[in-house]
């Protein structure tokens, strides 16, 4: 394809047109709409009025309920991200460094959870922690307790559910960055007198931070935007910001408030993404797919 550079080449734009059109109509325009809609006034169930007023925003800023939800969401997202990193790094390291002949099997097992339905994986924890769950069954069989111990419908169960569902994203991203490290570097550090731990801490760990950061971003943003997991595994007090959006839109049919909350969540999580891309760039995120 020897086109002269001077002439404007229309072909790539023709190929891109359907996708760009779809994203514009289905993502970009709707995102601007939630901002516009946040100034509308809610009158009654599912009835709102075109207006430009700050009532929704005022409510968001003054009502402590919303602040608690933001705080809880932030706290939970941080906890889930840290736990995923702690739980995920070592298995990723193991898969990357093992001399096991059937390494493909370990990788396949790592991809497998992505294919198992999210809702099934989430509700499966009821079978582990619930009153009729595996743990209570075991405890009662061992005679440790007469009555089932309540372990469900609390923050712990929600955290466990999140970590279980999002951990593969972390492991995969860390694994990809560990795979990309020159295998001679750690031995080189060792011959220069470093202990195995020093070699890991000074060479491997810093080189794998891009993967750790990419995995962390995904886990953080995915957790921060959730509402289904707390509904299934949490108690009445374990709501997140996404749950307020769900309540406003699905239960109260208060669209302007739903829009206000959605826009807020978009900005809060968007800030995290922007911060990430300032330091890391967006390339690392797509590496896990190749």
């Amino acid at each position: 394809m020897s086109d002269t550079a001077k002439e404007f080449d229309r072909r790539p734009w023709v190929l891109l047109a359907p996708s760009l059109l779809a994203i514009t109509v289905l993502v970009v325009i709707p995102m601007s709409f939630i901002l516009v809609y946040s100034f509308y006034e809610n009158i009654d169930l599912a009835v709102d009025r075109v207006a430009f007023q700050l009532g929704n925003w005022q409510e968001l800023l003054t009502d402590g309920y919303y602040h608690i939800a933001i705080w809880k969401t932030l706290r939970l997202s941080v906890i889930v991200t840290v736990l995923s990193a702690v739980l995920g790094y070592i298995p990723a390291y193991f898969i990357a460094m093992t001399k096991f002949r059937h390494k493909w099997l370990l990788l396949l097992l790592l991809i497998l959870p992505f294919w198992v339905s999210f809702i099934i994986r989430t509700l499966s924890w009821i079978h582990i922690l619930g009153n009729k769950g595996a743990l209570n069954g075991l405890f009662m069989w061992l005679g440790l307790t007469e009555q089932p111990i309540p372990m469900m419908f609390n923050e712990f169960a929600v955290i466990l559910g999140f970590v279980h569902v999002f951990l593969p994203y972390m492991i995969l991203n860390v694994y990809v960055s560990l795979e990309g490290i020159d295998a001679n570097l750690e031995p080189a550090a060792r011959t220069l007198g470093a202990t195995p731990w020093q070699a890991f801490r000074e060479v491997t760990l810093p080189l794998s931070t891009p993967g750790l950061a990419a995995g962390g971003l995904l886990v953080f943003v995915l957790t921060g935007g959730s509402y289904v997991t707390p509904l299934i595994l949490g108690g009445p007090n374990d709501f997140m910001f996404g749950n307020l959006i769900y309540d406003a839109v699905v239960s109260e049919l208060n669209w302007p408030m739903g829009a206000t909350l959605s826009f807020t969540l978009l900005v809060l999580l968007g800030l995290v993404v922007v911060l990430y891309s300032r330091f890391m760039g967006m390339n690392q995120l797509s590496k896990a797919f190749s």
């Binding site: 760009l20 935007g225 996404g242 959006i245 739903g258 959605s262 969540l265 968007g270 967006m282």
Partner: peptide, 24 residues
């Protein structure tokens, strides 16, 4: 820029994407 735009639906929280489209 185009690549970022094409990947953008992943970066928008799904809840927000859902509400936005619904309001539109």
């Amino acid at each position: 820029l185009i690549t970022t735009v094409l990947i953008s639906p992943v970066l928008v929280p799904e809840t927000v994407l859902a509400v936005g489209l619904l309001i539109f």
